[in-house]
């Protein structure tokens, strides 16, 4: 019964916060309306959310997000510098990252993370979901890049969303 009334415990507060940001006010009425929407929308869109999202280690997730924000900043400075320095000096390349993640959520989060950080864009996922092809703007050592992606991003995501 609990499952029916509140199918996605994480979605409800998220939707409430989004509603409050959207109306840009913190009045009691809007909090109530936001909670109502956050309760009703997950129920009505139940079919679009087949899997329940479970966060297993919130602290690891928090650390991951902080690392990600820092990396986005540094990556942007790096990419900006490469662009300003001119197209002649960049050494682009494709690298293949073998995936240890299995769930759809984990893979999409990893792909998005890769696209946001160090001069890399996730370009193609193999149909069997075993390999992610990544395009890097400036790559000297493809293996080092793959190792960085794996231990910096994939391992924490795996710990948070897919514990064994």
């Amino acid at each position: 019964m609990k499952l029916r009334l509140l199918p996605h415990p994480l979605l409800t507060p998220a939707l409430t916060v989004i509603w409050l940001l959207l109306v840009n006010s913190l009045s009691f009425g809007h909090v109530l309306l936001g909670l109502l929407l956050g309760w009703l929308i997950p129920i009505f869109t139940l079919r679009f959310w087949p899997d329940r999202v479970r966060v297993h280690k919130p602290l690891t997730l928090l650390r991951f997000v902080l690392v990600l924000l820092y990396d986005i900043l540094v990556a942007n400075l790096g990419v900006a510098w490469l662009i300003v320095r001119g197209p002649r000096r960049v050494k682009p390349g494709f690298v293949e990252v073998p995936l240890a993640l299995r769930s759809e959520l984990g893979i999409s989060l990893l792909a998005n993370t890769i696209s946001l950080t160090p001069g890399t864009v996730s370009a193609w996922l193999s149909p069997d979901r075993a390999t992610l092809v990544v395009h890097a703007l400036d790559v000297d050592d493809p293996e080092a890049l793959v190792a960085t992606i794996k231990h910096r991003y994939e391992t924490p995501l795996q710990e948070v969303f897919e514990p064994c």
């Binding site: 942007n76 900006a80 662009i83 197209p87 960049v90 946001l116 001069g119 864009v121 395009h135």
Partner: peptide, 22 residues
């Protein structure tokens, strides 16, 4: 700078980096 990368870099895959990040 992001748009500059779009105009300046040499192939599509490298151009992709400018707008998506910067």
């Amino acid at each position: 700078i992001g748009s500059l990368g779009l105009a300046r870099l040499e192939d599509f895959y490298t151009r992709l980096h400018g707008p998506t990040k910067a």
